[in-house]
């Protein structure tokens, strides 16, 4: 356990030193702030700059609070995820390429704690950034538009946090398997986009999919409960995270063993 904490601290220190702990939360805060403001002023903006015919802007009513929160999650799912995936794509692959992990692994460090410390740090950074951004979004939504029951917001945010955790786990797992960081990012986007797309196109057969989680979180904002099949997709996601993490440790151990014995 002490060893694990040291590895975890090493990750945190590294990310503080290269400003990841500042700039990623700031990006999320910026996204979270902008969305409610844009939604609120969209009719005004269209009227002033859109060149629309008189009265057409009235066709864009100010959305409800829960809609704005859902739109914020949409922003997080696009730019936010892009930033997270690109920031973490080299987590294992990059260290292997520049030799840092050899320095660590010559010491009696277990492969499981090496990978799980990395995972815990990535998840923590992702969730802290998301929470920071979302708090600002909620504040602005309350200020400009309307309040949404706090319980709905917290439940929805937790569900969305699990989706982020899932994506981060995908990045880490692929990063142990594949050498090139760019390929890791590309494949992660492939997986997440396929999952979300399939989930929205074929909701009947994709009830288990982690890609359903963001639509469940929208439903939590709206009504305070998830859509049908919420528990199934929740359980499947947790299971898949556990499986991927074990796979990452297994693959990493095998690869490093191969390196050290030859």
């Amino acid at each position: 356990m002490r060893q694990w904490i040291i590895l975890f601290k090493k990750e945190v220190k590294e990310s503080i030193r290269n400003f990841k702990w500042i700039w990623i939360p700031v990006v999320f805060i910026l996204l979270g702030l902008t969305q409610p403001v844009v939604s609120y002023y969209l009719p005004d903006l269209l009227e002033q700059f859109g060149g629309l015919p008189e009265g057409a802007a009235a066709a864009f009513p100010v959305p409800t609070g829960s809609q704005v929160l859902a739109e914020t999650l949409g922003q997080f799912s696009q730019i936010g995820l892009l930033v997270l995936v690109l920031a973490f794509m080299g987590a294992v692959a990059g260290e292997r390429n520049n030799g840092t992990n050899i320095m660590i692994l010559v010491k009696p460090v277990s492969y499981a704690s090496y990978i799980s410390a990395k995972w815990a740090h990535m998840v923590l950074l992702a969730l802290v950034s998301f929470t920071a951004g979302f708090i600002f979004s909620v504040y602005y939504t309350f200020l400009l538009i309307e309040s949404v029951p706090a319980a709905h917001i917290i439940q929805g945010a937790l569900v969305y946090g699990l989706w982020l955790t899932f994506v981060v786990t995908v990045v880490l797992t692929l990063s142990t398997i594949i050498k090139s960081p760019a390929a890791v990012a590309f494949l992660t986007f492939g997986v997440t986009i396929t999952l979300s797309l399939m989930s929205s196109l074929l909701p009947e057969i994709m009830t288990w999919s982690p890609g359903m989680l963001s639509s469940h979180s929208h439903s939590f904002f709206m009504n305070g409960y998830g859509n049908e099949g919420f528990w199934l997709s929740l359980m499947c996601t947790i299971l898949m995270i556990a499986v991927m993490l074990s796979l990452a440790i297994y693959v990493f151990r095998k690869k490093e063993m191969a390196v050290h014995t030859t």
């Binding site: 500042i22 700039w23 700031v26 805060i29 910026l30 702030l33 403001v37």
Partner: peptide, 11 residues
């Protein structure tokens, strides 16, 4: 928004 964007730029 402007302040935070500026902050990001400065960092």
């Amino acid at each position: 928004i402007i302040i935070i964007q500026f902050l990001l730029m400065v960092i």
